[in-house]
Amino acid sequence: MTTLSDAARAEIERQCARLVHVYANANDAGDWQAVAGLYAADGVMFRPTAPDEPLTGRDVILASLRARPARTTRHVCANVVIDVASETLATGESAMLLFTGAPQPLVGSYRDRFVLTEEGWRFAERRGSLLFGP
Rank of each mutant, 00 (worst) to 15 (best):
Cys77Asp: 10
Gln104Ser: 10
Trp121Lys: 04
Ala8Pro: 01
Ala95Tyr: 15
Thr88Met: 06
Arg126Lys: 15
Gly101Ser: 08
Val107Lys: 13
Ser129Tyr: 01
Ala67Cys: 05
Ala41Gln: 15
Gly43Phe: 07
Met1Phe: 14
Met96Lys: 06
Arg14His: 11
Asp28Tyr: 15
Arg71Tyr: 00
Ala124Val: 05
Arg18Met: 07
His21Ile: 09
Pro69Ile: 01
Ala41Arg: 14
Thr88Gln: 13
Gly57Trp: 09
Ile12Asn: 04
Val60Lys: 12
Trp121Pro: 04
Leu98Pro: 09
Arg74Gly: 00
Ala34Pro: 03
Ala63Met: 01
Val76Arg: 04
Val115Ser: 11
Arg58Lys: 06
Leu106Val: 09
Trp121Tyr: 08
Cys16Lys: 08
Phe99Ser: 02
Leu131Gly: 15
Ala7Ile: 03
Leu131Asn: 10
Val76Asp: 01
Thr88Ser: 13
Thr56Ile: 08
Leu116Lys: 12
Ala34Leu: 14
Val81Met: 14
Gly37Trp: 15
Ala102Phe: 02
Leu98Asp: 03
Arg18Cys: 02
Thr100Arg: 05
Val44Asp: 02
Ile61Lys: 05
Val107Phe: 15
Val115Tyr: 03
Cys77Thr: 14
Val115Arg: 13
Glu93Asp: 11
Phe46Thr: 04
Val80Tyr: 10
Ala102Asp: 15
Glu125Gly: 01
Val107Met: 14
Asn25Asp: 09
Val20Lys: 12
Gly128Ser: 09
Gly92Cys: 11
Arg127Ser: 12
Ala26Gly: 01
Val44Phe: 12
Ala78Ile: 06
Val60Leu: 10
Gly92Asp: 04
Leu98Met: 13
Ser64Lys: 02
Ser86Thr: 05
Ala8His: 10
Thr56Arg: 14
Arg14Leu: 07
Met96Gln: 09
Gly43Cys: 08
Pro51Gln: 11
Val80Trp: 09
Val76Tyr: 07
Met96Ser: 11
Arg71Pro: 00
Gly37Phe: 15
Arg9Ala: 11
Glu93Leu: 08
Gln104Ala: 14
Asp83Gly: 09
Pro54Ser: 10
Val60Tyr: 06
Gly92Lys: 13
Ile12Gln: 00
Asn25Ile: 08
Asp52Cys: 11
Glu125Asn: 03
Gly133Glu: 15
Gly30Ile: 02
Ser129His: 08
Arg18Glu: 08
Cys77Leu: 12
Thr49Tyr: 13
Met1Gln: 14
Arg113Glu: 12
Ser86Met: 03
Leu65Pro: 07
Asp28Lys: 15
Thr73His: 07
Gly43Thr: 02
Pro51Trp: 05
Leu19Phe: 11
Phe132Glu: 11
Ser86Glu: 04
Pro54Gln: 04
Ala124Ser: 10
Leu97Trp: 07
Gln33His: 12
Gly108Leu: 10
Ile12Pro: 05
Gly92Gln: 06
Thr88Ile: 12
Ala34Val: 13
Ala29Glu: 04
Pro54Asp: 03
Thr100Lys: 08
Gly92Leu: 07
Val84Cys: 11
Thr72Pro: 00
Thr91Trp: 05
Asp112Tyr: 05
Gln104Met: 14
Ala78Leu: 07
Arg113Tyr: 01
Gly101Glu: 03
Met1Pro: 14
Arg111Tyr: 06
Gly108Pro: 05
Val35Asp: 06
Ser64Arg: 07
Pro54Cys: 01
Leu116Trp: 00
Pro51Ser: 06
Arg122Asp: 01
Leu89His: 12
Val115Pro: 02
Ala85Leu: 13
